[in-house]
Design a protein around this nucleic acid. Structure first.
Ligand SMILES: [Mn+2]
Ligand SMILES: [Mn+2]
Ligand SMILES: [Zn+2]
Ligand SMILES: [Zn+2]
Lengths: 149, 149
DNA sequence: CACGATATTGAAAACGGTTTTCAACCTATA
DNA sequence: TATAGGTTGAAAACCGTTTTCAATATCGTG
């Protein structure tokens, strides 16, 4: 597995795109951030240290990360696109706490197998899938209460 | 299981909402339509026979259907909200053809069980989940070609 | 039935996240 | 350094969803 930095630079070269200071700044920040951040949240974080970089550039660069394979776009149904770093290339799915927003990742080979079985049964060619479990994480469940809103 | 019409009328009564001709027209049309239609598509269909009914009313009424339990909102990641009639109350998941838009429904108790196991393992309380398999349906796969776009 | 309180309607505007536009600017190459 | 062409940030456009608002309809009550 190539390092993310390398993978991104290779992609830029391949597509005759340019290596700019903004792109490198965003890349470093992105690799350091916790994952599953929305574009907006990531931008707000970044802006603290790099107030000169515009939202549009952040947005475009995150899309580049996704195109070159070092990031994945996620959509947890709250109307915001989220991005996460691809560590290795293992697939995983998510538990999403609807109270505190916590995201827990999981992988289950049995489920993946059963999905392939279903697709096969319908003569369906799977290109991608998404499995998300929504509910309350251990912290939010423990109290027996959802946060007062 | 109560009939959808009845369930909707009960809901209106319970919430002290009014039984209007628009709502009844939309209800009848909705129960007749094929499921998984976007608000826009449903509205365009409806407008052919009932040009007087506005988009806002359609939108609001579909939300009412969802609230009273006779419909479910779906989001297949194309940026459009979709609605489907709840036949009975059985849960199901979807195969989504990314080429022709065909939706195939399925239900798999093994997967549901494994999901509960995962939630339990993380001490997570599941309120809802979504599982969608994206790819090519048998028709679109058979040709070996995606449609020329 | 008529009244009046209250809910509903359709058109248009507002909303919110995403994407594009554009003129100034930068990068890579020679 | 000169040039071609990609990049940038701000602002505007976009697009599906939701709200606003004045006119209208519903429905319990007299
Ligand atoms: Mn993840
Ligand atoms: Mn369905
Ligand atoms: Zn939580
Ligand atoms: Zn298809």
């Amino acid at each position: 597995m190539k390092k993310p930095e390398e993978q991104f630079l290779d992609y830029l070269a391949r597509k005759r795109l340019k290596n700019t200071s903004q792109r490198m700044t965003i890349l470093k920040a992105f690799l350091r951030q916790k994952s599953h951040l929305s574009t907006e949240d990531f931008y707000l974080q970044l802006r603290k240290k790099h107030p000169g970089i515009g939202y549009a550039t952040v947005h475009r660069t995150l899309k580049l990360f996704s195109e070159c394979g070092i990031a994945s776009e996620r959509n947890f149904g709250d109307g915001q696109m989220r991005f996460e770093v691809n560590l290795g290339n293992e697939h995983h799915d998510h538990l999403v706490c609807t109270d505190c927003g916590r995201i827990i990742e999981f992988e289950d080979q049995q489920i993946e197998k059963l999905q392939r079985d279903i697709a096969h049964k319908h003569n369906f060619f799977i290109k991608d899938h998404r499995l998300e479990l929504y509910g309350l994480c251990s912290d939010c469940h423990a109290t027996g209460q959802q946060s007062v809103s």
